[in-house]
Every structure is written in C-alpha cells, then in structure tokens.
Design a protein around this nucleic acid. Structure first.
Lengths: 200, 200
DNA sequence: GTCTATACGCAGATAGAC
DNA sequence: GTCTATCTGCGTATAGAC
C-alpha cells in the first residue's frame, strides 16, 4: 500500500466524520501515523486533499445508481434492486450521506463545479424517472409521480442512517438495538413502496 | 429588542447555517452589526453561546411533538396532525434538522448531557408508540411496528429538507421548482402513510 | 454597555536537513 | 520520501479606554 493511498484512506476517515471545517490536518497525519508535512508533499493543501476525498466519496454512489437504472428490467424489479443495493451501500458507508449532504449544503457552488468539471457525471435520475413514467403509462404500475417515488425511497433508506444519533436519543435505543432495526428495514421499505406502486 | 436577544438571533442564524466549527464569532458580530467583544461580554465564550443556541433550537421541536402526542384523539388523526405541524415547522425552519443532526453526530455525549441536564426533556415517543400499538391491538389500524411507522413519517418529512442541495443537484431543479415540490408533499405523505396503516 | 487594541494559541503551510 | 523546525495568519479571548 503506497503512502499516497494510505493518506487518502486516513483523510477519508477524518473528513467523513468531522467535515471539512472540523477536520484537522494533524488528525489525518495521526491517522496515517506519519508527519503532517507529508500531507502537503502529496497534496498541495487541505482544500485539494478534501476535493479529492469528496469526489471519490461521491463516486461511491454514482455507479451503484447508474448500473441499476440502465439495467433492462421491469421497473418493479429495478426498484427492488435499488432499495437493496442502496441499503447495502449505506451499511458499508454509514458516514457517507451526512458528509455529502453537509458539504454540499455548506457551499453548493464550490462542490457543484468540482463535480461537473470532474466529468464523471451524476446518477441519471432523469432516465429513471422516464422509465417509471412509461411503466405507469403502460399500466404496469399505479399512476405515480416519478420524482416523488424516488425521493420517498431515498428518504426511507437514508434518513435512518443520517439521523442515527438523533434516533437513538429519541427512541432510547443503544447502538446495538438500532443497528438491528436498520438491518431489517430493507425488506420493510420494499414492501412499503410496492404497496404504493403495485396495481392490486 | 435587547442586545442580548439580537445576539441570540444572529448566532442562531450563523450556527444553523455553518455549524459549530464552521461558524466564526466575527460572522456573528457582523450579523448583529456590533463588535466581537460584545459577544464575550454577554456570553462567556463560543462554546456557551453555542450551547444556548443548540438547546433553544432543540426546543423548537419538542413542544410541537409533545402537544400532538398527548392530545386525546384517534391515532389516525394524531398522525395526520403530526405530519401537518411537522411539515410546517420544517418550512419555517429549513436549516434546523441538518444542524441538530450534525452537531449531535459530531459529539453525542456533549450534546446529550447538555440536553438532559437542561431538564426540558425530549419528545415522548414512548407514549406515541404505545398509542399506536394499542390502536393496532384494537383493530383500529393495521398491525404495524410503531417505531417503524414513526421513523418512516419523520424520514419522509425531513429528508427532502435536509438533502435539498443534493436533490436539486441530482434532479436538476432550481430552488423555486424544488420548493413547489416540497410544499405539496404534506398531503402526499399523509396519503402514503394512511395507505399503509388504514384497514381497507 | 460598547468600543479599540492586543495577547495568545492553534492550524495550515513552508524550509531545509537527512 | 520523510522528518524537524519554523513561519504566518486567523480566530478566540481579554484588557482597558470611553
């Protein structure tokens, strides 16, 4: 494992937990187990290290989405797949969504321009919406607003992760109990969404 | 309007947008239109000013919830009311949830202890869950897991606000269009939840 | 109670030895 | 490539005049 990739791993860990303004170059150096000056040797400054981490984090999400969307399968299956892989991704990257949302909220322009000039591209929800729309036109599923459906799914999947500390506080659960709750939600969300879109 | 309350308003504005580590005492002073030293005169330091803002912000949420929960009405009505007043609160305080979630995630112990020693208390979701459970025992609504239902409602209500910049980016909407989307969701979420819990 | 001036420490960044 | 030492500026906080 190269020093550079060790730094990236460490930086990801620190930035994802503390955010840009909360993260310290020293924290990252400690995490790598090396000197602070090294970070500046490999990445010019904090901003450019952050930029790299943000883009890479964002990319964790994109291919997952796009594979699912472009797949040539019935919309109902597509939605099942979406919920399934999205939930798994969240279980593997619990800090990811709050980090992305937060940094995007802090400075939409900075981030958006970085994303767009990166070329990599965003998940193509336009296409997903089209497919949902067509399916409802064909009578394959109920008449629904595609954007609403997608946002409902994302909300149900992501929010319980994003708000984990809030929820454990409000519902007086410990970490263990709450994780159990999270891991049974995949099936539950799928049932809920199908109940909404499937013709009875 | 006293200087103290002017400071509180300004600090709320700045902390809610930038979070603790992103906020600058200078930003707050600028927002008040007064000198930075004044902040230290009224509130000893940044931490104690923040603490006050956090607690006050948290309290925006609590009574809204507790009024609804303790009300003596059928559970279905209670849920309708919940969605309605919660959505309104979000429309009036769009920065609130991300702020609370974030700061809580940063340092759960610090925040939790501040909340608990504050005495004010948390929303009583235990009671809400009991009432949902009883209603389903009586056959008034479908058999459902109370915690899941509540978290579903909260997710559907809050997430579209929390992730606003992300969603406008992914769905290529401008602020105006997205706000229109948000304001029609109250009815939509209510329909969705009722479809889940109501006996056909 | 409000201001200006200033102290102080921390965090990002650089110089330069090895 | 990695380290130690150091500079610099910024942000919190205080002292003290008015």
């Amino acid at each position: 494992m190269t020093t550079e990739s060790k730094i990236i791993e460490a930086a990801k860990k620190v930035f994802l937990r503390k955010g840009y303004s909360g993260a310290r170059m020293q924290d990252i150096a400690d995490e790598v187990g090396m000197n602070k000056a090294l970070l500046h040797y490999y990445f010019r400054n904090k901003e450019s290290l952050f930029r790299m981490i943000f883009l890479e984090s964002f990319k964790t999400m994109t291919p997952v989405m796009n594979n699912m969307i472009s797949e040539n399968s019935p919309v109902v299956d597509k939605i099942k797949t979406f919920i399934s892989i999205y939930s798994e991704m969240l279980q593997n990257n619990p800090y990811l969504p709050l980090f992305l949302i937060n940094e995007l909220a802090q400075d939409p322009e900075r981030i958006t321009s970085a994303l767009l000039q990166n070329g990599e591209g965003l998940p193509d929800f336009g296409l997903f919406m089209d497919k949902i729309h067509e399916a409802s036109e064909r009578g394959e599923i109920n008449k629904v607003d595609p954007m609403s459906i997608i946002i409902n799914i994302i909300s149900l999947c992501v929010y319980p992760y994003v708000a984990k500390p809030m929820m454990t506080l409000l519902f007086k659960k410990d970490e263990f109990e709450y994780n159990a709750f999270l891991s049974q939600r995949k099936a539950e969300i799928t049932n809920l969404i199908l109940k909404i879109i499937e013709i009875q």
